[in-house]
Simulated scan of single mutants.
Amino acid sequence: MRPSLPVAAACAALALACGAAVPAAADSGPSVAFRMTDPRIIESSGLAASRLHPGVYWTHNDSGDGPYVYAVDSATGKTLARITMRGVPARDMEAISLGPDGDLYLGDTGDNLGGKWPEVWIYRFAEPKQLKDESIDVTRFTVRYSDGPRDAEALMVHPKTGRVYIASKNDKGGHLYAGPAKLSTSGVNVFHPVADVPWVTDGAFSPDGSRLVLRGYFWSAAYRWTDGTPRKIDDLDVPMQPQGEGVTFTTDGRALMYSSEGRNSQVWKAPLSGAALPDNVATSPATTESGRPQGGPAESATKDTGSKHAGKKAVGIAVLAAFGGLGYLASKGLRRRRRH
């Protein structure tokens, strides 16, 4: 999603002003992991960690690009492959997620008109075993929402059940929608709301399916996933980016990767701790190179988050005030008007 020029400038200035609120090179907070150096990637709007190719992340552009998905090497920031989806119009691609079947799911769910399209689409294809430029056939699913059209930028596939979820957004927040147990290619897949969520630009499930993380431009939060519904655990460290629209878990579930739109954009890594850690790694703490446990007990880490996030929120509020209502613009969706 591309905001107007004044808003984009304000977002960039906000990111610079808030830089002090994020530890740039500390083990306890977000730090830059790599940059996307491909000049074709200018509006990275979704992010997914590859299972077949360690250290590789899948991303794609927002509307305005073709039906392309890029495999980016986190060691170098270079694109290793560009996948072209045959026969796909690519109206407004907003999110990507990897399912338990080893397939990538791409959500053409954005709506630049603020929620007018009667239906949107999800495209599915197997994660390529070899990383090379190629054109592939995809499976297309038609999606409608039970309560009418929505603008949505987040699509998440649960890694255990395979059920697809979409998070919408509007002026006052959004909803988390659940799709059918199994998507159908023969008819319309109706998604129903299961929870209220904030104004979301992306989301991701942990590899074990026990945690859901949602993000916006200036916030991120962890949820415990139980019986198909989220329960908020805590606010998380999120880097201040020019236009943060992507998030995914690392394959070990111990950290989050945050991406942003923009040329040569940075991808940040944010280690998780305490209750935000997925269940399958919370009881197995990471170790340093010396073999000693890294960080303190999970319980104490959880207790420390209150003061940490209170301080970050105070900084954010002060900066937003300095920019004369940028928070209001963000709450209005940073809406753009494009030709369709």
Rank of each mutant, 00 (worst) to 15 (best):
A10Q: 10
C11S: 12
C11D: 15
L14I: 06
L14R: 11
L14T: 12
A15N: 03
L16G: 09
A20R: 09
A21Y: 03
P23I: 03
A24G: 07
A24H: 09
D27T: 14
M36P: 11
D38M: 06
D38V: 05
L47I: 07
S50D: 13
H53N: 05
H53E: 05
P54E: 10
V56M: 03
T59W: 00
N61S: 07
N61C: 06
D62W: 04
S63P: 00
G64R: 10
G64Q: 02
D65P: 01
G66C: 14
Y68V: 04
V69E: 02
V69K: 01
V72P: 05
K78D: 13
K78W: 12
L80Q: 07
L80E: 07
A81Y: 07
I83E: 00
T84N: 14
T84F: 12
M85R: 05
M85P: 00
R86K: 15
V88F: 05
G102H: 07
G107L: 04
G107M: 06
T109R: 04
D111M: 03
L113E: 05
L113P: 03
L113G: 12
K116P: 02
W117Q: 14
W117A: 08
V120H: 01
W121S: 15
I122D: 02
I122E: 01
D133F: 00
S135W: 09
I136F: 12
T139E: 13
T139N: 10
D147P: 01
D147C: 02
P149A: 07
E153K: 00
V164T: 07
S168T: 13
K172D: 13
L176Q: 09
Y177R: 04
K182S: 14
K182G: 15
S184A: 05
T185G: 08
S186Q: 12
G187K: 13
V188H: 10
V190S: 06
P193V: 00
D196N: 10
V197E: 03
P198I: 08
W199N: 15
W199L: 15
V200D: 01
A204S: 11
F205Q: 01
G209W: 02
L212E: 00
R215E: 04
A221K: 13
A221Y: 03
Y223M: 05
R224T: 15
W225V: 02
T226C: 14
T226A: 15
T226K: 08
I233K: 13
D237L: 10
V238T: 11
P242G: 08
G246F: 02
T248V: 06
G253L: 06
R254E: 13
A255N: 07
L256D: 04
N264Q: 10
V267E: 02
W268V: 01
L277Q: 11
A282W: 00
G295A: 07
A301I: 08
K303D: 14
G306E: 15
A314W: 15
I317P: 04
L326D: 04
L326G: 03
Y328E: 15
A330P: 12
K332G: 10
G333I: 07
L334H: 00
R336K: 10
H340R: 12
